[in-house]
Write a protein that binds this DNA or RNA. Structure first.
Lengths: 223, 223
DNA sequence: GTTACATTCAATAATTCTATAGAATGATCT
DNA sequence: AGATCATTCTATAGAATTATTGAATGTAAC
């Protein structure tokens, strides 16, 4: 009809990007990288993949231009190549969420209390942080907190929460956050603290989305 | 670290959506469906696929919730399940465009005059149509025009343009459009008409994006 | 230079995806 | 009811993807 080969080449190159997203492990890696730079070994640990396998997935995504890498000492650190990658993953999530039965089942099962634990918007939290009327709680692991976190956020990884409860004020409102919309850490922290009488809500989405929205962050500034 | 199986099931279901996008033919089908409903045979014709193969691609995308279908007489008509699918494809395009070398090469080669033929924004065109100070030219095939088009647009398929030049005013500005950002029809129409002295520009993107932006359209209203 | 170590490469087997051809389904029309 | 036609299903062969293993590469530390 209109044209044949150049157009098809274009669609094929788009398809290559989509293919780079079309594996659960790679999406899991992308969620990790949305937090910040990671080494191959670090990603392999967190995702449960072998180092060689993680390396292959990473290289594939790098070829598809989703990732970039740099060397630091012995380690090769990967990162998202561009904020547009985060937008792409978000768009993917939205389609799957609104329509996909399997996703619905999982969300309905695992995140059943989601609506009950209503979320605070980024804008609202930003205003409250500025006004100093809220305690921000980062429940991610320490190293993720170290690479970047919300201003004035205190870090208590979920598994240490019960041991370090005394650090949390009972009067002030607490807002907990973690990696992103499907990170369970913040959900569990909110449920745990509410049971024990704290006044606590959850930030919508997580750290990467906050950063992508151009809101202020505290970041590690090494080379 | 955080959780294992439910989270992984979630990522796997996202991956299924991405996989549905990960084939050039399927993206080509999606571009067609962005124009409006299409039968299996119609899509097979336009994409050069066999009917059976097109049917398989369609079913795969339907399972991944990208498409919906309905029966009308002898034909099964497929459509995009949701506007979010269009956003997803746009996000995919953006990542590929900004970063992917292959896409760049093709764009650089085939659309080399892109910048020279500067585009009119949707908003600007909408205002001009309302004010009645522009001629809108739809260069898609007749059947695509018939299923939906911009208000007051006249339809002259590209291949008939040279025969029907007298229908076009020389004084008024003309804005041409077609399917979307990678549809070549409008580019070629603009180049053709400019050479012959018309004052003509191209609409950014195409009909699906116009419609998705909530701007007014004329649509066929059969059952 | 040699060693240690993180990462990548190469080869492989198992699995999954793709396109084709022909049969089966399901709806319309006479 | 039977004929016709669009679509989907089934089976299959070829191609591509995935995870694993062990070797190779390249950098840093000694």
């Amino acid at each position: 009809m209109s044209s044949y080969s150049p157009k098809r080449a274009l669609f094929d190159s788009f398809a290559e990007v989509a293919k780079a997203l079309s594996h659960g492990s790679r999406l899991e890696i992308l969620e990790q990288l949305a937090q910040g730079e990671r080494s191959v070994e670090g990603l392999a640990d967190r995702t449960g993949l072998s180092v060689a396998n993680a390396s292959q997935h990473l290289r594939l995504m790098q070829r598809a231009a989703l990732l970039a890498s740099r060397r630091e000492g012995k380690h090769v650190l990967y990162r998202l190549s561009d904020p547009s990658v985060l937008h792409l993953v978000a768009a993917l999530r939205k389609v799957a969420e609104s329509k996909h039965a399997a996703a619905r089942d999982v969300i309905g099962g695992y995140f059943r209390e989601r609506d009950a634990l209503e979320a605070v918007s980024r804008e609202e939290l930003a205003a409250r942080i500025k006004a100093g009327i809220v305690t921000v709680l980062d429940v991610r692991p320490e190293d993720e907190y170290a690479t970047g976190h919300l201003p004035r956020a205190i870090n208590i990884p979920l598994r240490e929460l019960s041991r370090r409860l005394r650090k949390l004020p009972k009067r002030r409102e607490i807002v907990a956050y973690c990696r992103g919309p499907y990170c369970v850490l913040a959900f569990e922290a909110v449920a745990f603290l509410r049971e024990r009488g704290w006044k606590v809500r959850r930030l919508e989405d997580g750290f990467p989305e906050w950063k992508a929205a151009g809101l202020p962050v505290v970041e590690r500034v090494d080379g």
